[in-house]
Amino acid sequence: MLRFLVRRVLAAVVILVLISAVTYVLFFALPIDPAQLSCGKSCTPQNIALIHRNLGLDKPVPVQWWDYVSGVFTGRHLPLGNCPAPCLGLSFTNDTPIWSTLMDRFPTTLSLGVGGAAIFLTVGVGLGLLSAWRQGRLTDRIASAVSLLGQSVQIYFIGPLAIFLFADRLGWLDAGHDPDWSSDPVGSLSGVILPCLVMSVIFWSNYSRQTRSLMIEQLSEEHVRTARAKGMGSAYVFFRYALRGAMGPIITIFGIDLGSILGGTVITESTFGLHGLGQLAVSAVLGTDLPMEMGVMLFGATAIVAFNILIDACYAFIDPRIRL
């Protein structure tokens, strides 16, 4: 287990270094001079040269990149301000450290991602289990229809619809606000429920259909038949034997979907006017805040890589044949 973790973390570091290099190249491939951006409209060539020096843009690109990467671990003293340890640079728009903004916005995105995933796993897998249990019956068809509904809608369509219906008309749920878990847990919860629900809908159908077919496949497995031949009850066989076998593939699909979940939060945040990483990325792109774009990208990539390692570790708990 320890060897597995060490190996995977090392591999993840390599991946992240590559990602940061690529994003850094993108940064310079853009037809925008960062100095021009931070200088404003009335700019002299002297000013631009000064800013180049201030930002370190007069150094060779590999050296700049190295400064950037080492700054993540050591922090940097930049001419425009101090940038403490996990330094991802300073924002062009307000000269504040990128990291603190990310940390400010991360709870919203994490709440959406975790909450949404919890809901779509429960609903999607649940509907799939129900379909498999009542395979070919009316319940199966209704469950399949419900999950198909999810596939045919988009967040930006049902989002406003849900706000109108559940928040404005019925008044059951909060229309969505940024959570602050430490000071107001209850209010935070009510603020993210509706966004999480809306985001989860688009994931239902995939999980319910995959779960249904995985379970039907598992139920015809020979070891499941053996369990029935032992006289174990149907529900016991269904959950202890068949579901156990279906869990691995479901988790694999979940791992693949991590990127889509992050994408889903971006749209959900925009729809509900929440201030998370997605909204931050959108505004950074619109405002050509290059350090902020890079920071969000690197942070998102790190999160996905880290969750993937966690998921791989989960396999070992589910399947005893896998030794890490």
Partner: peptide, 27 residues
């Protein structure tokens, strides 16, 4: 009835399957 069969299976009547690799649960 299913319940009665479940009581008999594994107790009064049982079965050995051909391929023990697939017939035993790996989990």
């Amino acid at each position: 009835p299913r319940k009665r069969l479940e009581k008999l299976r594994g107790a009064k009547m049982s079965m050995i399957f051909q391929d023990s690799l697939t017939a035993l649960s790996p989990y």
